[in-house]
Design a protein around this nucleic acid. Structure first.
Lengths: 148, 148
DNA sequence: CGTGAAATGATAGGAAG
DNA sequence: CTTCCTATCATTTCACG
């Protein structure tokens, strides 16, 4: 991971569909050199995968929320597997704190949120309590760290 | 957004560097048809941008945390602009709840977290209180919703 | 690093729902 | 009117020397 690799990663984060030739031009390296570096970055696992960002508003997914979950650990059910299988759950983190799991969920509206909570999340055995925080607005939502 | 567009989006989420020809083969459409749909998805704004997912472990960014922030609104400083400018801040959400802002941050270790809190976040005028929750492990971390 | 074969992408013209 | 296809041409990618 030298300076060139960092630059390549930054360019890819801005637009993963950029061509190798374009990268070569921008960082002043020959195309074969860039191709080789891309292969290495892929093989080394630094590049996890290529994806797109979809506009959630345009897909009518307007409501995002965080849900804290308390788990009764005496009931040894695998809550996390059931949680992560839910489509609306974007993230599921095990945290060190008052509660056990923190979810980020994305739904179309409050009705869908209610349905998610009542029929999907609270239906899972072992969950003793939940607490939901609605997101009013997201000022920043990065996929990747720029800190490299 | 018909069935074909949905399929194209799914394929792109799996690998944004997939070629148009490959998409055409997989969904049984000609290449020009796929090209035209990609253009439309871009123009309509459903595709926000193309990016990569980088492996944070490989970049030695091991520590993720959520930080709740309370703001004194009588001091009319634009806290959010200063917060979102910080590289380590991956997300910044304005929430409806006890506190005002919820941040997701990514750093290398606890020393970096301390530095972030003391020198960058708490240095911002208008922030009255913070509360940090360390993420032990992430079971799921999706960029995009699969719910379309 | 350059070169050429192979794959990919863009475009035009035309047909069908 | 929109969406699709075939065919052709320009461009990019990739592997080899």
């Amino acid at each position: 991971m030298d300076k060139f690799d960092s630059k390549i990663l930054r360019l890819l984060i801005q637009n993963a569909r950029i061509t190798g030739a374009d990268i070569a031009r921008k960082i002043n390296l020959s195309l074969p050199a860039v191709t080789e570096r891309l292969r290495k970055l892929g093989r080394s696992g630094i590049i996890d995968s290529y994806t797109i960002r979809v506009n959630r508003e345009k897909l009518s997914l307007h409501l995002m929320a965080f849900i804290n979950i308390w788990i009764d650990h005496t009931k040894n059910t695998n809550v996390k597997d059931q949680i992560t299988a839910i489509d609306e759950v974007l993230e599921c983190h095990h945290v060190a704190g008052d509660y056990d799991l923190l979810l980020k969920v994305l739904v179309s509206d409050t009705a869908a949120l209610e349905n998610l909570l009542v029929n999907k999340i609270k239906a899972i055995k072992g969950i003793t309590r939940t607490s939901t925080t609605i997101i009013l607005r997201s000022y920043k939502e990065e996929i990747n760290s720029k800190a490299f």
